[in-house]
């Protein structure tokens, strides 16, 4: 009798490569915007084009990685009771520095992001990572965590920005705000008659994020249902196997008795 393929236990977690997991979890599973709703203000304000979203993302990558490293470095030097304010000082310093660097080396981006550069200070994502991860982990892990989370944030901003830009202008441009040596449109539908300016404006921002969130929730729900169904199937099978074993045992014991 050929051995029956045994279903894997879906409840048993797959063994994961620790560092890789820290890096990639921010993309979908723990995406700061779509899952945790952190940093909604910049997600609405600077995503009228994909490139400004990307630019904001890059700044957040710099700030979050930097602040995570410093927070992790000083986590044992700072007394417990003043940890949170000390972290705020670290973050504010990083934001000020990154703001100055942007103004010096990416002036167009600095102009288009406006007050949202200083407002990175109050982005809950950064403080959240500092308190919940960097203050408890090694420097290298904290750096990877900050980088990965900010990458997920950037990905979300770019997705929102791309959606809004394509609806608003029918094309996606690159090289306008960032100091790139070229200026191209990645996608150009040439459908100028169908441009909807409202997507570049505030109303479009809210609606696009709302729709994308619903999409992500739907995918999450679908996955969960699938997982649930798998789990149910596995339980059914286990039950069946157990019943089989029981029956066999009973038959064996009956055979012994006879």
């Amino acid at each position: 009798m050929a051995e029956k393929k045994v279903a894997k236990n879906p409840m048993k977690k797959k063994k994961k490569n620790g560092r890789l997991d820290i890096l990639t979890k921010g993309f979908i599973r723990e995406n700061p915007i779509f899952i945790f709703l952190l940093g909604m203000c910049p997600a609405l304000a600077v995503t009228s084009t994909m490139e400004t979203g990307l630019g904001m993302g890059l700044l957040v990558i710099l700030v979050l990685t930097g602040s995570n490293v410093v927070v992790s470095l000083i986590r044992n030097l700072i007394p417990e009771q003043i940890q949170i304010p000390a972290f705020i000082v670290v973050i504010a310093t990083f934001v000020t520095i990154v703001g100055m660097l942007t103004e010096a080396y990416a002036f167009a981006l600095h102009q288009s992001l406006g007050i949202f550069i200083p407002l990175i200070v109050v982005n809950c994502l950064i403080m959240g990572r500092a308190t919940s991860f960097a203050s408890k982990n090694k420097v290298s892990d904290s750096a990877i965590d900050g980088f990965g989370m900010a990458l997920g944030f950037t990905f979300a901003l770019m997705l929102i920005g791309a959606t809004r830009e394509i609806f608003a202008s029918g094309a996606i441009a690159l090289g306008v705000y960032l100091p790139l040596p070229f200026e191209i449109s990645i996608i150009n539908t040439e459908m100028y008659l169908f441009n909807m300016d409202v997507f570049a404006g505030p109303a479009g921002g809210f609606i696009v994020i709302g729709v994308l969130l619903a999409l992500f929730t739907a995918i999450g729900n679908y996955r969960q249902k699938k997982k649930e169904a798998e789990r149910q199937a596995w339980i059914e099978q286990k039950k069946k196997e157990a019943a089989e074993r029981k029956r066999k045992k009973a038959m064996e014991s009956a055979g012994d008795a006879s």
Partner: peptide, 22 residues
């Protein structure tokens, strides 16, 4: 609808409010 409950539908409502404020 299930996946629109909570924040997503609120965001769309906020978008319509923003249109009104425009």
């Amino acid at each position: 609808p299930e996946s629109w409950k909570g924040v997503p539908i609120s965001l769309v409502v906020a978008g319509i409010m923003a249109l009104a404020f425009l």
